[in-house]
Amino acid sequence: KVTYHVPNEEFARKLYKKAVDANLNVEIRVENGQFIIHIE
């Protein structure tokens, strides 16, 4: 399980798409202006 803290929405979207394309379980949320992405 990996967690990324991404300040940039564009990068967060790319990361999310890559994980989904790889059939990984992804959860994304915004906290204090940062995008928190959990990948399992």
Results as ranks from 00 to 15, higher is better:
residue 29 R to V: 11
residue 6 V to I: 11
residue 23 N to W: 15
residue 28 I to R: 00
residue 20 V to S: 05
residue 18 K to T: 08
residue 25 N to E: 07
residue 36 I to T: 07
residue 10 E to I: 07
residue 35 F to C: 05
residue 15 L to M: 07
residue 17 K to M: 09
residue 32 N to K: 06
residue 11 F to C: 15
residue 7 P to M: 14
residue 20 V to Q: 11
residue 1 K to P: 09
residue 26 V to I: 06
residue 29 R to Y: 12
residue 1 K to Y: 13
residue 40 E to S: 14
residue 6 V to A: 11
residue 21 D to A: 13
residue 2 V to I: 11
residue 40 E to I: 13
residue 37 I to W: 02
residue 38 H to K: 10
residue 1 K to F: 13
residue 35 F to R: 01
residue 40 E to C: 12
residue 11 F to W: 14
residue 31 E to Q: 08
residue 10 E to R: 06
residue 9 E to M: 09
residue 28 I to D: 00
residue 23 N to Y: 14
residue 34 Q to T: 11
residue 26 V to Y: 02
residue 38 H to M: 14
residue 6 V to E: 03
residue 11 F to S: 10
residue 29 R to C: 13
residue 24 L to I: 05
residue 20 V to Y: 07
residue 14 K to G: 03
residue 17 K to C: 13
residue 18 K to Y: 13
residue 28 I to C: 15
residue 27 E to F: 13
residue 38 H to F: 13
residue 36 I to L: 05
residue 22 A to L: 13
residue 21 D to V: 08
residue 16 Y to R: 04
residue 34 Q to F: 14
residue 40 E to K: 10
residue 13 R to W: 14
residue 17 K to P: 01
residue 26 V to W: 04
residue 38 H to Y: 13
residue 36 I to M: 05
residue 15 L to W: 05
residue 28 I to V: 06
residue 19 A to T: 03
residue 23 N to T: 06
residue 38 H to I: 15
residue 36 I to W: 08
residue 29 R to T: 09
residue 5 H to Q: 09
residue 33 G to S: 03
residue 40 E to Q: 11
residue 19 A to G: 03
residue 31 E to H: 09
residue 34 Q to Y: 13
residue 9 E to G: 05
residue 24 L to E: 01
residue 16 Y to M: 06
residue 5 H to F: 13
residue 8 N to L: 11
residue 1 K to D: 07
residue 27 E to R: 09
residue 31 E to P: 02
residue 40 E to V: 12
residue 2 V to N: 05
residue 15 L to Y: 04
residue 26 V to H: 00
residue 27 E to D: 06
residue 24 L to V: 04
residue 37 I to S: 00
residue 21 D to W: 11
residue 14 K to Y: 14
residue 21 D to I: 09
residue 11 F to K: 06
residue 8 N to K: 03
residue 18 K to S: 09
residue 2 V to S: 06
residue 38 H to T: 15
residue 8 N to D: 10
residue 38 H to W: 11
residue 25 N to D: 07
residue 8 N to A: 05
residue 9 E to S: 04
residue 17 K to F: 09
residue 7 P to C: 15
residue 29 R to E: 06
residue 12 A to D: 01
residue 5 H to E: 06
residue 25 N to Q: 12
residue 24 L to G: 01
residue 16 Y to K: 02
residue 12 A to H: 02
residue 31 E to Y: 09
residue 14 K to A: 12
residue 5 H to Y: 14
residue 11 F to Y: 12
residue 19 A to N: 02
residue 32 N to R: 06
residue 30 V to W: 13
residue 28 I to K: 00
residue 39 I to K: 01
residue 36 I to P: 00
residue 13 R to C: 15
residue 14 K to H: 07
residue 14 K to S: 08
residue 38 H to G: 03
residue 6 V to G: 12
residue 30 V to P: 02
residue 34 Q to M: 15
residue 33 G to L: 04
residue 17 K to T: 04
residue 30 V to K: 08
residue 26 V to N: 00
residue 13 R to N: 06
residue 17 K to G: 04
residue 5 H to G: 04
residue 19 A to E: 02
residue 21 D to Q: 12
residue 10 E to T: 06
residue 11 F to Q: 13
residue 27 E to Y: 13
residue 19 A to C: 14
residue 20 V to H: 06
residue 22 A to T: 03
residue 3 T to Q: 06
residue 30 V to F: 14
residue 3 T to V: 11
residue 15 L to D: 01
residue 18 K to G: 05
residue 8 N to V: 07
residue 10 E to P: 03
residue 28 I to P: 00
residue 20 V to F: 08
residue 29 R to I: 13
residue 33 G to D: 03
residue 34 Q to R: 10
residue 20 V to L: 14
residue 40 E to D: 10
residue 17 K to E: 07
residue 36 I to D: 01
residue 12 A to S: 01
residue 27 E to G: 04
residue 14 K to T: 08
residue 14 K to F: 12
residue 1 K to G: 14
residue 24 L to Y: 07
residue 33 G to V: 08
residue 15 L to T: 01
residue 28 I to L: 11
residue 9 E to F: 11
residue 17 K to R: 10
residue 40 E to P: 04
residue 12 A to N: 02
residue 1 K to E: 06
residue 36 I to S: 05
residue 37 I to Q: 00
residue 35 F to Y: 11
residue 22 A to Y: 09
residue 14 K to Q: 11
residue 2 V to G: 07
residue 10 E to D: 09
residue 8 N to C: 15
residue 30 V to M: 11
residue 22 A to V: 06
residue 11 F to I: 14
residue 39 I to H: 01
residue 4 Y to R: 04
residue 2 V to F: 12
residue 16 Y to W: 09
residue 13 R to P: 01
residue 30 V to Q: 08
residue 1 K to H: 12
residue 20 V to R: 10
residue 38 H to R: 13
residue 36 I to Y: 11
residue 22 A to D: 04
residue 4 Y to P: 02
residue 27 E to W: 14
residue 20 V to G: 02
residue 11 F to A: 14
residue 14 K to L: 12
residue 30 V to I: 12
residue 7 P to W: 15
residue 39 I to V: 07
residue 35 F to G: 00
residue 31 E to I: 12
residue 11 F to L: 14
residue 11 F to G: 04
residue 19 A to I: 10
residue 15 L to N: 02
residue 2 V to R: 11
residue 21 D to H: 08
residue 8 N to W: 13
residue 12 A to F: 10
residue 22 A to R: 07
residue 25 N to G: 05
residue 21 D to L: 13
residue 30 V to T: 05
residue 28 I to H: 00
residue 30 V to E: 10
residue 10 E to C: 15
residue 23 N to D: 04
residue 21 D to N: 07
residue 33 G to T: 03
residue 16 Y to N: 01
residue 25 N to A: 10
residue 29 R to K: 09
residue 3 T to A: 05
residue 16 Y to D: 00
residue 30 V to G: 02
residue 19 A to H: 04
residue 37 I to T: 00
residue 18 K to C: 15
residue 26 V to T: 01
residue 27 E to H: 10
residue 7 P to H: 13
residue 25 N to K: 14
residue 10 E to N: 04
residue 35 F to K: 00
residue 28 I to W: 07
residue 30 V to N: 05
residue 36 I to H: 03
residue 12 A to W: 13
residue 17 K to I: 10
residue 3 T to G: 03
residue 32 N to D: 08
residue 3 T to M: 08
residue 3 T to L: 08
residue 23 N to V: 14
residue 35 F to P: 00
residue 4 Y to Q: 03
residue 27 E to C: 11
residue 33 G to Q: 03
residue 40 E to T: 13
residue 34 Q to S: 10
residue 24 L to D: 00
residue 18 K to H: 08
residue 37 I to N: 00
residue 11 F to D: 13
residue 26 V to L: 02
residue 10 E to Q: 07
residue 2 V to H: 12
residue 13 R to H: 05
residue 25 N to H: 14
residue 28 I to E: 00
residue 14 K to E: 11
residue 25 N to V: 12
residue 40 E to A: 09
residue 2 V to W: 14
residue 10 E to M: 06
residue 36 I to G: 01
residue 30 V to C: 11
residue 40 E to F: 15
residue 21 D to F: 10
residue 23 N to R: 09
residue 37 I to H: 00
residue 16 Y to E: 01
residue 18 K to N: 08
residue 1 K to V: 11
residue 37 I to M: 03
residue 11 F to N: 05
residue 15 L to A: 03
residue 13 R to F: 10
residue 3 T to F: 09
residue 4 Y to F: 11
residue 11 F to M: 14
residue 34 Q to K: 09
residue 15 L to F: 06
residue 7 P to D: 15
residue 22 A to I: 11
residue 17 K to D: 06
residue 26 V to R: 00
residue 30 V to D: 02
residue 8 N to F: 13
residue 22 A to E: 05
residue 6 V to D: 05
residue 5 H to L: 12
residue 4 Y to K: 02
residue 2 V to C: 15
residue 9 E to P: 04
residue 38 H to N: 09
residue 1 K to I: 11
residue 6 V to S: 10
residue 29 R to D: 02
residue 21 D to R: 11
residue 22 A to W: 13
residue 36 I to N: 01
residue 14 K to M: 13
residue 10 E to F: 08
residue 19 A to W: 11
residue 15 L to R: 02
residue 16 Y to V: 06
residue 4 Y to N: 03
residue 26 V to P: 03
residue 4 Y to V: 10
residue 12 A to E: 02
residue 23 N to L: 13
residue 3 T to N: 05
residue 14 K to V: 10
residue 19 A to K: 02
residue 24 L to Q: 02
residue 5 H to S: 09
residue 29 R to W: 12
residue 13 R to G: 02
residue 9 E to R: 04
residue 19 A to P: 02
residue 2 V to L: 10
residue 31 E to V: 12
residue 4 Y to S: 02
residue 35 F to L: 07
residue 31 E to K: 06
residue 18 K to A: 14
residue 19 A to Y: 13
residue 19 A to S: 04
residue 19 A to F: 15
residue 36 I to Q: 03
residue 34 Q to D: 04
residue 38 H to C: 11
residue 3 T to I: 12
residue 25 N to M: 12
residue 33 G to E: 03
residue 17 K to Q: 12
residue 5 H to M: 13
residue 9 E to I: 12
residue 24 L to A: 02
residue 26 V to M: 03
residue 34 Q to V: 15
residue 19 A to V: 05
residue 2 V to A: 06
residue 32 N to L: 07
residue 12 A to T: 04
residue 39 I to Y: 03
residue 32 N to V: 05
residue 18 K to R: 10
residue 32 N to S: 05
residue 24 L to W: 08
residue 3 T to C: 15
residue 29 R to F: 11
residue 28 I to A: 01
residue 20 V to T: 08
residue 3 T to H: 08
residue 29 R to L: 10
residue 7 P to I: 14
residue 11 F to T: 13
residue 30 V to S: 05
residue 37 I to Y: 01
residue 39 I to R: 01
residue 13 R to V: 04
residue 39 I to D: 00
residue 5 H to I: 15
residue 24 L to T: 01
residue 13 R to S: 03
residue 32 N to I: 09
residue 15 L to H: 02
residue 22 A to F: 12
residue 20 V to K: 12
